[in-house]
């Protein structure tokens, strides 16, 4: 008996500090987000009025909300698959053992993912800059003069943002995949090689299936990454412009928060939160059941 008490005390000692701090600094504010979303609250200390689901009803009829939703969806659609495919491709390449200096390439490719998003956004807004930047000037070498600036044209702005996000994230997932591939026994590849499987076949038949668990995890990571990181990138690089053509959900939320519509802003956060959970669940279902260790 004494032993189990001591065990329980130890469990509590280990669990409780984290749990308490987690409740105070994350759970409590998160609950407040949900609560505020049901109020008309300017956030200025004026009395908040309970309005039920009114904020959500407003959202359904809000044109700009749909633009933001569409753009966030666009970023998810255009960045997730390319990022992961590029990551997978380079991971497979660099772990194949046939590449010299693979350590060098790994180090370099991983680099953008450790930079602050603020740094990346400032840097890329200068890269896309119509006169100071290198992209326009690079295209100019090939005689491709852009009539409108990349970040100032509704047909190019989201692509430009997507490329920045892929640039930032690909190396990160590459290193994750490399870690996974390294743990796959070389024997399997050697056996496949003897059977005459091409590198390409090895990739699809061995690497991808054995990495599936990691791939599933990274999909969830990247969905969250796209939703949150798009905020910084859009705020710094375009401010949602031109017009509203690069508004994303969290910048939309932010604009309402600073425009004395705290309740509405929090309602948007609730929606974003639900969307990210739903997407994660769906992608988890689509990619099959995860085998749980132990």
């Amino acid at each position: 008996m004494k032993k189990s008490i001591r065990r329980n005390v130890f469990i509590a000692f280990c669990i409780l500090p984290s749990l308490l701090l987690f409740s105070l600094f994350i759970v409590y504010p998160a609950i407040n987000v949900f609560k505020t979303s049901l109020y008309q609250d300017s956030g200025l200390g004026n009395k908040a009025v309970f309005i039920g689901l009114e904020n959500f009803k407003t959202m359904i009829n809000d044109e700009v909300f749909y633009i933001a939703l569409k753009n966030t969806g666009f970023l998810a659609a255009t960045t997730i698959a390319p990022t992961l495919l590029i990551a997978l491709f380079f991971a497979a390449l660099l772990t194949s053992g046939k590449i010299k200096y693979s350590n060098f390439f790994r180090t370099v490719f991983f680099f953008p993912s450790i930079l602050s998003f603020v740094v990346i956004s400032i840097l890329w807004s200068f890269i896309y800059h119509p006169t100071m930047g290198i992209v326009d000037s690079f295209l100019g070498i090939f005689g491709m003069e852009l009539e409108l600036p990349l970040l100032g044209n509704k047909y190019t702005v989201m692509w430009a943002l997507a490329i920045t996000m892929i640039w930032q994230a690909a190396g990160y997932y590459m290193v994750m995949y490399m870690a996974g591939i390294d743990s796959i026994s070389r024997d399997i590849y050697e056996a496949a090689e003897i059977d005459g499987a091409s590198s390409f076949q090895q990739f699809w038949r061995i690497t991808v299936p054995l990495l599936w668990g990691i791939i599933r995890t990274t999909i969830i990571f990247i969905i969250n990454g796209v939703i949150t990181n798009s905020f910084t990138i859009v705020k710094v690089m375009t401010n949602g412009g031109p017009d509203r053509d690069s508004e994303v959900l969290l910048t939309f939320m932010y604009n309402h928060a600073v425009n004395a519509n705290m309740g509405y802003a929090m309602a948007v956060v609730v929606v974003v939160f639900i969307i990210s959970i739903i997407l994660s669940v769906i992608s988890n279902r689509l990619t099959g059941e995860q085998t749980v260790e132990i």
Binding site: I26, V33, I227, A257
Partner: peptide
């Protein structure tokens, strides 16, 4: 122990809560 799974799941959910979602209520608190 009994609450192990529950606590684990709570933290799993926590992964989805980005700082940017809660920064305003957090500041107020």
């Amino acid at each position: 122990f009994r609450l192990n799974n529950l606590i684990n799941n709570i933290y799993m959910c926590g992964i989805f809560i980005q700082s940017i979602f809660i920064v305003i209520p957090l500041y107020l608190m």
